[in-house]
């Protein structure tokens, strides 16, 4: 217990000097409001605008990718101030305040920030708990590092494939009907026989565009019904479709 690896201890407990970088304009505004101990519901726009612009000048403290958004907020502040100053034809009705929109945004953002700080603690806790990350035994053992693919991976692969096919002058037949239901049965049958299906190869075999599209929908339906599982051995490798083990047992 006592021989905790020294280096890790030092790394986690050493004091880290890090300049605060403001992610967005609301971040900076909230900081200024807190610094100046301002009531969020009654913001002196002139004061806060001056402070805000001053920070904008110190570029190292804002996220430069977000410069446009910071400037936009400055414009909004000045706009609000001008609305407060300019005489109006009709006086503002009770409860109407040009600052209202900004205040609502800040209040909500403040809540989100607070929630973030709680979640950050939880993240820290969870990151020190380790679980095993494996898939259940698959038909072919030894295929480690399988990643279950998402709808986007599938769709992307499918579109790439269709683009390629398009170039090959994909034939379009009319009159022949394909139903998703039949295709689903066909895919299951193939999987039961061959146990695994190569996503790319399978779609390459499809004769017409229509058939390919129907097949793709069928495959998505099967994945949704958790009857099959689409996995990738490693990133950027071909996608393989397996029958889920539980579903096999059910049949």
């Amino acid at each position: 217990m006592n021989d905790l690896p020294l280096r890790e201890m030092e790394a986690s407990e050493s004091y880290q000097v890090r300049l605060e970088v403001f992610e967005g304009p609301l971040d900076l505004l909230l900081f200024l409001i807190r610094k100046k101990k301002i009531d969020i519901h009654n913001i002196p726009i002139a004061v806060i605008t001056r402070e805000y612009l001053e920070y904008l000048g110190r570029e190292e403290q804002i996220n430069l990718d977000r410069e446009a958004e910071f400037v936009l907020m400055a414009a909004l502040l000045i706009h609000i101030k001008s609305q407060l100053l300019l005489p109006r034809e009709q006086p503002l009705t009770e409860g109407e305040d040009p600052r209202r929109f900004l205040v609502d945004q800040l209040v909500e953002f403040q809540k989100i920030k607070a929630a973030c700080s709680i979640l950050k603690e939880r993240e820290e806790e969870q990151l020190s708990l380790w679980t095993r990350e494996v898939l259940p035994p698959l038909p072919e053992p030894g295929e480690a590092d399988l990643v279950e693919v998402s709808l986007f991976d599938l769709a992307e692969t499918f579109f790439v494939l269709m683009k390629r096919k398009e170039a090959e002058n994909f034939r379009v037949f009319r009159g022949k009907n394909y139903s998703v239901e039949e295709k689903m049965k066909e895919i299951i049958a193939t999987l039961e026989k061959e146990s695994v299906l190569d996503f790319l190869e399978y779609f390459n075999r499809q004769e017409t565009l229509e058939e390919a599209v129907v097949s793709f929908f069928s495959l998505l339906e099967l994945i949704k019904a958790r009857l099959v599982m689409a996995v990738q051995e490693r990133l950027f490798q071909t996608i393989k479709v397996w029958l889920r083990r539980e579903s096999k047992a059910r049949q």
Binding site: E8, L129, W130, T131
Partner: peptide, 17 residues
Amino acid sequence: YVFTTRPEFDPWVRRFL
């Protein structure tokens, strides 16, 4: 429910991984 390592052993797990 999941099995996890205890948080106090995190440094060793990380060293191992």
